[in-house]
Design a protein around this nucleic acid. Structure first.
Length: 274
DNA sequence: AGCTTTACCTCAGCGC
DNA sequence: TGCGCTGA
DNA sequence: GTAAAGC
């Protein structure tokens, strides 16, 4: 599940591989990957041009072209964005191939086919609803304890569901939310509005810490994730609760528990996060 | 309005 | 070995 | 992981 650190790692690894290489062709193997255009429109916008810049906003990857077009990619659950030699066999579940001038391919491989591509022309986010309503980036300086407190205050929902809401904080997903809450010593099911000032400070610190470390270790490969060069991440070795049901808590030894919250599996330490 | 559930897909892993 | 169910 | 549909 690519979250902020994984998308950021993909962005960095792809930069060296795809920028300023002329696009020679576009193949769409799963047409529904295109949300707001068809194959012809995408081809018209891409072929003969090149990518000039890759940006990330939350879990969105924004690929600028040497025109006023941008390609916005969201990988959802199982999307993998990789560069390979054109001659490599096309993997099962490949949604598209973009052929570059150096005989390399940018490919989207996506077992569950939830990943999406939007083509934008001109400024603004067009009809990409999730992108225009995105909350603050956890590593931006305007992501302050006061901002976080404001997002949590007055809400009756579980703190975990608020943190998963991309309109509150951009880029957190199931793994990094569970890890942040464990480091902050907060039960994921605690009512967001009941989080104390002290807890907000700890949560703010732990979110920034977990996201920074996640990026430093090139993301978490729990299952499908690989970066733009096909390499696995390293942060999975440092996970303290996610996927560790029954294993002893790294801080107190209590077995990690698992509950269902906001429709997602949630891992926590019953003692540290009472 | 805010929160929860469901739909979108395919497959690995489990129990029988 | 295969079937259905669960969860990612 | 999210958008849309349902309380």
């Amino acid at each position: 599940m690519p979250e902020l650190p994984e998308v950021e790692t993909i962005r960095r690894t792809l930069e060296e591989k795809i920028l300023y290489r002329t696009i020679q062709g576009v193949e769409i193997l799963y047409p529904r990957v295109l949300r707001n255009c068809d194959h012809g429109q995408l081809e018209a916008a891409l072929v003969g041009r090149c990518f000039t810049k890759l940006d990330r906003r939350g879990k969105y990857l924004i690929c600028s072209l040497d025109s006023d077009h941008r390609l916005v990619i969201h990988l959802r659950m199982t999307g993998r964005l990789v560069t390979v030699p054109v001659d490599d066999a096309v993997e099962k579940h490949t949604s598209f191939c973009i052929h570059l001038e150096d005989d390399s391919d940018l490919r989207l491989v996506d077992q569950r086919k939830f990943a999406t591509v939007d083509l934008l022309q001109g400024p603004g986010w067009g009809s990409i609803k999730g992108l225009e309503s995105l909350g603050k980036e956890p590593l931006d300086e305007d992501f302050t304890p006061a901002y976080l407190a404001d997002q949590l205050s007055g809400r009756r929902a579980a703190v975990k569901s608020v943190l998963l809401d991309q309109r509150r904080v951009a880029g957190l997903g199931n793994i990094y939310v569970d890890e942040s809450l464990h480091r902050a010593g907060i039960f994921p099911g605690k009512i967001a509005g009941n989080i104390t000032e002290e807890e907000v400070r700890r949560l703010h610190q732990s979110i920034q810490g977990v996201i920074r470390e996640g990026i430093a270790h090139r993301g978490t490969t729990f299952r499908d994730y690989v970066d733009g060069e096909g390499r696995q991440g390293g942060f999975q070795a440092l996970l303290r609760v996610y996927g560790r049901e029954g294993e002893p808590c790294s801080t107190c030894g209590e077995p990690i528990a698992r509950i269902k919250l906001a429709g997602r599996s949630s891992f926590f330490c019953p003692r540290c996060q009472g």
